[in-house]
Structures are given as C-alpha cells and as structure tokens.
Design a protein around this nucleic acid. Structure first.
Lengths: 213, 213
DNA sequence: GATACATGCAACGACGAGTTGCATTAGCGA
DNA sequence: TCGCTAATGCAACTCGTCGTTGCATGTATC
C-alpha cells in the first residue's frame, strides 16, 4: 500500500524490468550467502529471503541451487573488470606485484570468495563452478605468461622460467592464508607474496630440470 | 553363525574389546568419508554403514557428526608420528625440504585431508577441528623457528627472518595446489616449494621492515 | 486501461536426520 | 561352561526441510 517500496537502484538495471531486478537481487543474495556460509550451508529459501523474493520464484527460474550458483558466478565473471594491462613498467617485480594485488582483490571480493568457497564446500560436483575457477586461472596465466617472457628477454628472469609454476607459487600463499588460516590480508601481504615469487624466480627455482638454458 | 567374522586386527587394539573395535572402525570410516566428500556431504548413516555398524550405535556414542569428527581427528592427532628432528643437516635448504615433505605427507594423509576438508566445508563451527588445525600449525612452527634461527646464525639466512611468514609462504602453494587446484602432488613439488621459500628467504623477503639488521 | 506473464502464497508430498523401545548378541567373571 | 551386564542391531516413529503444485495477486507492456 505504500507508494513504491521497490525503489529501482539508480542506473543499476533498466527500470521497468522486474525480471532483471529480481535476477540481480537473487544473484546478489546467492553470492553473499555462499561467501559467508559455504555452498552446503545455504538453502534456496535463505537466498530468496535475503533477496526479498519468494522461494517459489527462485525454484521456477533456476530449478536448483547448483544452477543458481553457476549462473550467479558466470554473471559475476562477465561483469568482472578487465585485467589491468599495465605491463609497461619494465620491472618484473612491479608487474608481479600488480598481479598479486589483483588476485588478492579477487579473493577478497564477494564473487571470488563465493567461487572458492563453493568449490571447497561441496560445489565440486557443479561443472559450472569448476569452469568459473578454471576460467579465472586461465585468464591470469594469460596475463602472467607474456609478462614472464618479457622479463626473460630483459634478463630479469632466467630462461626457461615456467609461468604456470610461478603463478601457483605466487598465489598459493594468498589462498592458503585467506581461506585456511583466515588471516586478514592486506596489500602488503600481496606485495610480500609477489616479492617472494620474484626472488625465487630470479634464483631459477621455476626453471624445469629438462629445460636447459 | 560363522566362526568368528570379527577378526581383531593384530596388535591394533586390545582383543576382546568390542567397544574399542567399533570405535576404531567408526573413526576410520569417518575420516575416510570426510576426506572424500567433505563435512557437509556425509551423514552419520553413511559413516556407520562404512564402518559396518548401525547408525544408532554412532548416535548413542557420539551424539552428533560434529563430536564424532572432533574425536576422530583428535584420535588421529594423538597417534600421529612425531616430527623428524633431523636438524643436523647444516643446510637450511635441506631442512626446509624435509619440512615441506612432512607437510605434503600430512596433507595427503587421510587425517590431514579430513581435517582441512572439514574446516573448509562447514566444520568451522566445530571448535575441535579448529583446535586440530591450530595444533598442527603450532607444531610445525615450533619445528621451523629454531631451524630458521640456526640458519641465521650460520649466515645462510638474513637476520630478522620471520619463521612464521616463511612457513606460510612455504606451505601455501602446497595447500593451494592440493585442495583448490586439485593438482596431484609429488615429493618434487614439495621440494620446489621448499626451494622457492629458501630462495625468497635468502633474498631477505621475509625480514620485516621494522626489524633492522 | 486490458492482457499476458511473473511473482506471492499456502498447502502438500517426499525425503533424510535423529530418537526410542525392545530383541539380540558379545564380553566378562564365577 | 554358564549367567549377568552392557553394548549393539533393528524397526518404527517424529520432526524439520526441501522442492512442487494450484491458484490468487501484482506488474509491465501495448
């Protein structure tokens, strides 16, 4: 009976589209719930309640929690901002620091936390979640690989340095500390991980045995 | 009606104790189930079935899945073999390699995988699981700290190197690759992580800013 | 303002978790 | 070997939650 309690968020979605509004609200609630509680501890009903819609609506439009999370993550991935291609620094340490900070931002973001928590807490059955994670990984590798190649050309890293190994070594501690140790991470921690990876790479740790100079 | 189908495992528990036998079987089944499926995707009934007992027995003796897992993990921790105190190597790289391999062994063990998966998949509410993880962490730190101190005294690592930071940086990639990337890890991967941590430590990456030489 | 469609609502069936009373069995001592 | 005590097996039950369905209500578009 109140005038208009469903105030359309300014500029968020095109006004008049109730469908889009509900979709947004449900995705939002789903990511927040899963980031907070993990995949198995949330219910469609709690997501619906948080979104301010009825559970029937969610069931009718997505069918299951699996598909809902899959689409919500996909949506979040699509709207993710592009990689900062600031590769003109010339210093591999600076560039890896940017990568580490970007990863930290993702890990701390709701969508990133939701994806990892989904994967770690029962979402492994969901192919869509796995796709999301793999896509993120591939994206980052695509960013790191040319960066490593240029660093090798500049003589900052030894020839044969494996970008995949370097990347895993770089982000591993951030994931471990955030999701397992529950450490509150800051940019300084990202910088530390980057510095460690850079030092190890410079020492030739990430050059496979079989790849001679 | 068969003669004696419940063959007491030789030397495992004191023969004649059905209680001890059931306890062993249930703990065994619980750790295996949780390591395979995670905390939320297992039921008391499935654990009981795997253990070859009735679910009523489990409910009567442990009350809930939480308490059962807590006791099972505690039991596994108690029976864990002591740390290999082979600190006479004289080379910090060798010593950290041993630490990394020990961590890898724990991560790949059923109890270790069970603990982490429990923690990551809904067991965060359980204080006993958290205690188990923290205990393991403290144990390792207690191993690494004197190791780092001696390395500093020998001049292999710069003064002020933080053993906690070093440890997290060392094991992070192993946890990340095992539990998130689902990489099949070998001793070579543990060695790689150790080598990376050693190189980074030698470069002074783990010396806090405030700690002057 | 009329129409088609999305949503809200309440009730329902299905399923699994956890409980309870009782029969059965195993371990332990005489 | 026998009997007693306690633990286990078993079946049935309650209860809460998930997911579905039929219908009423509201909303967007023409």
């Amino acid at each position: 009976m109140t005038a208009h309690e469903t105030t359309p968020a300014p500029g968020t979605t095109r006004p008049g589209g109730r469908t889009a509004r509900v979709r947004e609200a449900v995705f939002d609630a789903a990511l927040e719930e899963v980031a907070l509680l993990g995949f198995d501890d949330i219910s469609v009903e709690s997501i619906a309640a948080r979104a301010g819609v009825h559970k029937t609506t969610v069931y009718r439009r997505w069918g299951s929690k699996d598909q809902l999370l899959g689409e919500a993550l996909k949506d979040a991935a699509d709207s993710r901002i592009g990689l900062t291609d600031s590769a003109g620094s010339g210093d591999v340490a600076d560039e890896l620091r940017l990568v580490a900070r970007a990863v930290l931002a993702t890990v701390r973001s709701r969508a990133g936390a939701a994806a990892v928590r989904t994967l770690l807490s029962g979402g492994q059955s969901s192919a869509e979640v796995r796709t999301f994670i793999d896509g993120f990984f591939d994206e980052r590798i695509a960013q790191v690989a040319p960066l490593v190649r240029r660093a090798v050309e500049r003589g900052q890293l030894p020839p044969g340095t494996d970008p995949v190994v370097l990347f895993k070594q770089l982000v591993g501690p951030l994931y471990y500390r955030h999701f397992i140790m529950a450490d509150p991470l800051t940019e300084a921690d990202a910088d530390l991980a980057a510095a460690a990876a850079t030092a190890a790479a410079a020492a030739g740790t990430f050059v496979p045995r079989s790849a001679g100079g």
